[in-house]
Design a protein around this nucleic acid. Structure first.
Lengths: 212, 212
DNA sequence: TAGCTTCTACACCGATCGGTGTAGTTTAGC
DNA sequence: GCTAAACTACACCGATCGGTGTAGAAGCTA
């Protein structure tokens, strides 16, 4: 609700609260996560939380915003690192996919559990928070990815009508259904095989030389 | 937990309870959904629920099983209806996709909200229930779809190494990210365009004549 | 040292919820 | 029409939780 916060309280306490809240919201969901447990996790008094946030809902929204921005910037970094200078498109895309999927098992993993919670609780999450996540999260990274794909297409290695749609397809084919089922992500070989298959499915659909 | 139920109570009451519970579990999630509210939704006394189910968790598991079986059989029907006799592969796949996506907005829609809840609450759902859903739900339909794709491949219209993986890709490309974001699904033209793009991406990746 | 803000510990309120007990009413099957 | 099972209404318990009040400790600034 309140757009601009006036930085009440100690910044390090605030960070600890947000970090602890992310962990518990991600694991337990909005309703199940108790504020006392969050306070304990953050090594902070229950009362201090209300010194930084007006509400449980307010805290939730802050957690969404913080985590989304952090993850989105990581994703954009990966896009930049792998898809700016492209030598062998297929192997570069596979490397890109490996890095992309690696985020799901990194220390940023709780974020994606949080996203599942948001998707489940859509009816109870304030619409403003939902919209904020969609824009600065998946929409932003998809746009960034689409830009790179368009540039590669202009070089002649890809052919597509709608870069945004193609970017969405690539993201789907790379992450497969692992967003819904984050197990099996620890088998390196299986993960790589899955990514390779996804990239090949993507490429042979968009590569110009095999487009009919 | 208890595998075999001894059909305690009136069957129509049981059905009403399961139906009401599905609606509320889907909308509110396991924790938020109150048993009193479920009882009211089902037009049944609070106490009657405990005559049919031992627990809230027991009821939840029954709801998962019931809804999953119903939806899976619908999906298999759609596969059978559209992919048994294939004339024009691309247009048949598009029709198939339209029917497939139509389920998401049908009266079976609450099921997918329930699935989002399950995916979010994975840490708190009994593993047996999770496994049961995965097997009789997505794994089953994917296997069924893979069978059809293999048959089409044997006829020479498709080429693929791993039919199961291909089936997964097709399911992803057809439903795009609408499983996570079920809005926008009411714009007929946009939906059809999305499905068409997905099918074309799939086809040009697996069609033999354009495989390098 | 003085003064201000922040944090902590703790007790507390009101509401919600899962689950039970009970007494009485309805319904199904013989 | 009788009996037993099933259902209803209602009161109730114990636990959890969001949020507040308060009094004092800790830390920063001058």
């Amino acid at each position: 609700m309140t757009g601009a916060r006036k930085a009440a309280g100690q910044p390090d306490k605030r960070r600890a609260i947000v970090a602890g809240a992310l962990k518990l919201f991600a694991r337990d969901g909005y309703t199940r996560a108790a504020l006392d447990a969050i306070a304990a996790e953050a090594g902070v008094s229950n009362r201090t939380i209300y010194n930084h946030f007006t509400d449980k809902a307010d805290l939730f929204q802050a957690v969404i915003q913080d985590s989304t921005e952090r993850v989105a910037s990581t994703m954009v970094d990966i896009i930049d690192r792998h898809l700016t200078k492209v030598a062998d498109l297929e192997s570069d895309l596979i490397d890109f996919g490996v890095a992309w999927l690696g985020v799901l098992t990194s220390d940023l993993a709780p974020h994606f559990a949080l996203i599942r919670q948001i998707n489940a609780e859509q009816e109870h999450v304030p619409p403003a928070a939902l919209q904020l996540w969609r824009r600065t999260g998946p929409q932003h990274t998809r746009h960034e990815l689409a830009q790179r794909l368009r540039r590669i297409a202009e070089r002649g290695d890809l052919a597509m009508d709608d870069p945004a749609r193609a970017a969405g397809h690539l993201m789907l084919l790379i992450s497969a259904d692992n967003l819904a089922d984050p197990r099996d992500l620890h088998d390196q070989r299986e993960t790589r095989a899955m990514i390779t298959a996804g990239v090949q499915a993507f490429l042979h659909g968009y590569a110009r030389q095999i487009r009919r």
